[in-house]
Design a protein around this nucleic acid. Sequence first.
DNA 1: TATTGTTATACTCTATAACTATA
DNA 2: TATAGTTATAGAGTATAACAATA
Lengths: 159, 159
Amino acid sequence: MSDTPKDDVSEDTAADRFLQQFTGYRIKRALLVVHEDMTETLVPLGLRVGTFAPLAVVAANPGISQTKLSDVLKIKRSGVVAVVDELERIGAIERKPVAGDRRTNALFMTTAGGRLWQQAEAAIQAHEDRLFTDLTDEDNDQIRDLLSRVILRAERAKE
Amino acid sequence: MSDTPKDDVSEDTAADRFLQQFTGYRIKRALLVVHEDMTETLVPLGLRVGTFAPLAVVAANPGISQTKLSDVLKIKRSGVVAVVDELERIGAIERKPVAGDRRTNALFMTTAGGRLWQQAEAAIQAHEDRLFTDLTDEDNDQIRDLLSRVILRAERAKE
DNA sequence: TATTGTTATACTCTATAACTATA
DNA sequence: TATAGTTATAGAGTATAACAATA
């Protein structure tokens, strides 16, 4: 059996084999790696993994409402409040009233937020280039395409 | 600009485009989809996403120690305690003393745990077949290979 | 009545640090 | 001194439910 104490090699192989078996678990481990490196990338900019995506969406969709942001990012409206609070507190975005509907907040980048977003986007691009350096451009396109198909199919199936 | 209220189409496209841009964010969204479907799959068996992987590792590595399990799954030893407690409480695995070292626990499946694992493995296999049904076998191999390369490279870089 | 944003609350996951018993 | 397991605790992340203001 395995009474011999040559643990390192045999156990690493067992771990790798386990990693091989389930795609879902592999996705989890990949996210772990991405999350850690992404955190190191964003902290110097005063951002977190959880504020990067909302900032990206506001940058690309000026005037978007909190509910719409909630839909796009698939987080609850109560979670959006906390994230928008934080981004507003660091001066990256601001809530503005909407002319026709006094319930709604329209979210806009500030000037400082625009600069921050430029830095963050470049930093995350570099982070992904670094992390996925072993993959060819075709590999990268493929992985994006495959994941997107899984996500979009599943999310549409829920509606 | 975007004063026209034809939100649905244009906003969905914006969301999709955002989803396209960053591989890391796509991995997160994919995990969200996987996690949700996996939970529905495991709950009827009395398992959770967080107990499935440890069960799989113990099934494949009878007698593994908690510290080794911690290494393989990349979770802290304190986290292992809770998970092993839970799996032991539902009668799936058991801690056994190790002859040469009274500090260490050896983890083994119970007979009931073996049956549970058989069911769980089949259920998760079906869940992945269902979730990744749009992908060809080659696509599946590719996605596994690409993710594994990213993970193994990053994890080895940390050592 | 329905929707937007908000608050309060709780639950999961994970991490740190300190402790114990062994080695 | 170092290691295996444990406990206590705290921080993210996310979910639900109830509420006020507005539609």
